[in-house]
Design a protein around this nucleic acid. Structure first.
Lengths: 102, 102
DNA sequence: TCCGTTACTACAATTTTTGTAGCAAGAATG
DNA sequence: CATTCTTGCTACAAAAATTGTAGTAACGGA
């Protein structure tokens, strides 16, 4: 069953996803977890957002089964999270091209 | 030259992009423009956000050369915007799979 | 002239985010 | 066995972003 998420009135998965990823720092957190697990404070330092909001976003990402807390290593992407990341990776190369235009 | 964007202190294009797309309604606006141009009010009705913020986001997307205003047809994706959209389209299918897990 | 459509703006109320400080638990260190 | 460090995380007031409603200004057609 799909969770009702803020700003997503239809419940259509793509809308739920766009709403989730469209919250401040969410995409960035997924991005920072792209290679290895990161501790809460590492994320904080890398991202530079307040602990309050990082914690809120991590909770949302955990509920969305995209991120999990591994006591040994820290926060890491789940299998689903890695799948999503794989879809987002092409943004990296494209952003370099895009940057030439702006 | 890459614009300095809120929350993006490095200026690295991927960070600028993630910051831009990570603002509320931005991904959603790009998504709604995926097929045809839309009028300001159409976007407002589809999305359900305040005109203030829709206008702000449209201005940002226009400055980022991802969206343009075509007087005849309304707001539409630029060539760059279409490229970005093509990278985002796989999210649609994936979100359906993801929805089964949440 | 009046009405509809267009893209927007004004602005107070509400919600979100920030920045700083600190808590509580467990492990390591003296 | 007391202290310090690291861990994830919370409290809370200040600041910033967003909302909701109303309205503006320009243009076209009747």
């Amino acid at each position: 069953m799909v969770k009702r998420v803020r700003g997503s009135r239809t419940g259509r998965p793509i809308m739920v996803l766009l709403d989730l990823l469209g919250r401040r720092w969410t995409l960035r957190i997924v991005w920072e977890l792209r290679e290895e697990a990161k501790r809460f404070r590492e994320l904080q330092d890398l991202i530079g957002a307040s602990p309050t909001i990082i914690n809120t976003r991590l909770a949302e990402l955990r509920e969305a089964k995209l991120v999990q807390l591994d006591e040994e290593a820290g926060y890491r992407l789940t299998t689903l999270g890695e799948e999503l990341l794989r879809l987002l990776l092409p943004l990296h190369v494209w952003s370099e091209k895009w940057a030439k235009f702006i």
